[in-house]
Design a protein around this nucleic acid. Structure first.
Length: 507
RNA sequence: GUCUUGUUAGCUCAGCUGGUAGAGCACGUCACUUUUAAUGAUGUGGCCGAUGGUUCGAAUCCAUCACAGGACACCA
């Protein structure tokens, strides 16, 4: 039974009783004419009035009851709407005979959504409140709310029943409002720069644009498998081939990998591509983007993140190889020598496959010794070509690419490069990835001949970038788990085991 | 995937080296017309995550499983 709990049954009984009294416990005729925030702002003058009230003003407000304090013939309740919390004063003698004792006190309770009308006044304790002369039930809550003081702290319940978390925890609502603003501002920033927002497929015939394991689904009508996209990159670049010069997409990517504090199987990123620009231009627009976000979110340039202090006014730029010895304290003389790097890594008790290339080993060194030290925003530039299959080679040094990743608070936030637009080079790099895949790297990129063909028609010199929105929001809200910036993070189903048992009788 | 911690009333949590379940909030009843987690009195409420084992006896010890948190690994 769904409603077998005693407390729930009690509340269902109350709803039934109200129906008998002619009160609809699920009424939809709200007459609200203002919000709590507006009420509180408009009536700040009441405190200066002689009798601390103005009976000529009248407001109708709605909200969920969060506190219910009965003191005999008078009660204080607190109701909450999206904008804030309001104290409402309810007295017996202000209502029709019987309402206060039999309806209000007995059958309306914490969790219910009510509508109140009345005038503003300030209590003896100095709190601006509403003196109610009408109170109506709008929605009966038949499940009791969690405890009013501690609220709900069990993370599992908070994630599985996010609505409860949102009811009980104003901070959580705030975090998701910031998230919404970040996405909205991001969209506006790029639109204002002349970028065109586009939508590209979520179901791909080839999981391309990143190195990651995809989710597989099946298209019945065509009888073929499709991959939930791991990145929109190759489609966006096709659009650049087609003549759009600045495009962006804010949407979900799906990666069939482990889950932890910084990884959810579906996550949101913005990717943008900008013709006739290079990664140098992307560094500049990224700095501008952060200034824009901070201005419009009204954030100080220095933000705490855990026990770190991040200064968003201090962006720096370091080539990857240089960062190994200037930041990572790796001996300078080994960074260009495969064997010496392996020796060094082994001496630090880090095991690596000896099939790794020089570039891959340099990447290892970076991950191991540099990444976590990059607290203030740092553009790490000039990535080795063999760990950058889609990036354009540097004209000065074909072993490195015109690429950067942006690190903040020890985490990768963005990845960007001048795009590879040489179709033959792209073909060769796909081939190298395929070989790598055949030798066991199941996350290597697949061959995408259709994309190579697109490039063969000529893609203007272009720079492109991806920014992880979830991790960005984590930074801005000082949250340390990606689940705390996702309304509905991925969770294992609770009842999987039972269902399984039903279908296969055993044990 | 590995290690580790947790799972007890609707919620937040106690429950020691095994002896048959406890508090606060919520809920019921009573009192109370300016409270702020209101207060006072009183009462109801539990298959102690699941399954096995050890034991005269298990919330407690052991094993397996499920789910979750954390760390590590993988993952750019």
């Amino acid at each position: 039974m769904v409603f077998d709990n005693k407390l729930i049954q009690q509340r269902i009984d109350k709803a039934e009783l109200l129906k008998k009294e002619g009160i609809n416990p699920y009424s939809n005729d709200s007459k609200r004419n203002t919000t709590i925030e507006k009420f509180l702002n408009v009536n700040t003058d009441i405190v200066h009035k002689e009798d601390k009230r103005d009976e000529k003003r009248n407001y109708t407000l709605s909200g969920r009851i969060k506190f219910f304090r009965v003191m005999g013939k008078a009660s204080f309740i607190k109701i909450e709407d999206e904008s804030g919390m309001l104290q409402v004063y309810v007295t017996r003698d202000n209502f029709p005979e019987g309402f206060y004792n039999d309806i209000f006190k007995k059958n309306i309770e914490v969790g219910d959504i009510v509508e109140v009308s009345g005038y503003p006044f300030v209590t003896g304790q100095g709190e601006l409140s509403l003196h109610a002369n009408d109170l109506r039930l709008l929605t009966k809550a038949i499940s009791p709310l969690p405890e009013k003081f501690h609220g709900i702290t069990d993370k599992e319940i908070r994630y599985r029943k996010r609505y409860l978390d949102l009811i009980m925890n104003a901070d959580v609502r705030k975090t998701f409002k910031i998230r919404s603003k970040v996405i909205s501002l991001t969209r506006r920033f790029f639109e204002d720069k002349g970028f065109l927002e586009v939508e590209t497929p979520m179901m791909h015939p080839i999981a391309g644009g990143a190195n990651a394991k995809p989710f597989v689904t099946h298209h019945n009508a065509l009888g073929i498998d499709r991959y939930l996209r791991i990145a929109p990159e190759l489609y966006l670049k096709r659009l650049i081939v087609g003549g759009f010069e600045a495009v962006f997409e804010i949407n979900r990517n799906f990666r069939n990998e482990g889950m932890d504090a910084t990884h959810n199987p579906e996550f949101t990123s913005i990717e943008f591509y900008w013709a006739y620009k290079t990664y140098k231009d992307l560094i500049e627009i990224t700095k501008e983007y952060f200034r824009y976000l901070f201005d419009h979110l009204n954030l100080p340039t220095q933000l705490p993140y855990g026990d770190m202090e991040v200064d968003f006014g201090k962006f720096s730029e370091v080539p990857l190889i240089e960062s190994l010895y200037t930041i990572g304290d790796v001996p300078k003389e080994i960074v260009d020598d495969k064997n010496k790097i392996i020796e060094f890594l082994n001496s630090k008790n880090i095991q690596v496959k000896n099939t790794l290339s020089l570039g891959q080993l340099q990447g290892e060194l970076f991950d191991e010794f540099v990444e976590e030290k990059l607290i203030n925003p740092t553009f790490i530039t000039e990535y080795p070509v063999d760990i950058s299959p889609l990036a354009r080679r540097s004209d000065k040094n074909p072993e490195i690419t015109e690429r950067f990743e942006l690190f903040i608070a020890g985490r990768e936030i963005a990845n960007a490069f001048s795009e590879l637009n040489d179709p033959v080079d792209q073909y060769e790099r796909f081939k190298a990835q395929v070989e790598s895949k055949e030798s066991g790297d199941d996350e290597a990129h697949e061959m995408d001949l259709d994309f190579v063909e697109a490039l063969s028609y000529g893609m203007a010199p272009t720079a492109g970038q991806g920014i992880g929105i979830d991790r960005l929001v984590m930074l801005l809200t000082n949250e340390h788990s990606i689940r705390d910036v996702l309304l509905f993070p991925a969770m294992k189903p609770v009842y999987a085991e039972e269902k399984h048992e039903e279908s296969s009788p055993q044990a």
